[in-house]
Amino acid sequence: MSKTVLVIKWAVFILIFITSSALCQYDMVEIDNSVFGDPARPPSVFEHDAHNENAGLDECNICHHVYEDGKKLEYESSEDMYCSDCHSVKSENGSPSLRKAFHMNCKGCHLEQKAGPVLCGECHRK
């Protein structure tokens, strides 16, 4: 194999790699934890579409809930908002902190359903 061919081969390979990962941004694979600043653990693994398909979730507000006066509103949903819009990093106004909100939303449901990860390292994979 000549040197040029090798270089081209590598260039193509790298290009495909970059574009593919860029495209996948839409197909969510992990929770965006940038709001934490200096997160203590790796971002939680979460493949949105696969999860919902797997879990048979049709209603968005099962996860993307809206609470008012401590009660979940049955017909409201919040998929157009960031979780951190309501749940700040530090707990405020009685709404759980962002970290706790994530944990309760995911782990809480997993324990209820007896399905899905519940241990730290099952989501925050190294």
Partner: peptide, 21 residues
């Protein structure tokens, strides 16, 4: 330990500063 504090927080809604992992 952070992981332990997270559990206390979930169970009893109490929290305190953690050691860096």
């Amino acid at each position: 330990l952070l992981s332990h504090i997270v559990l206390w927080d979930e169970a009893w809604n109490i929290t305190w500063p953690a050691l860096p992992d």
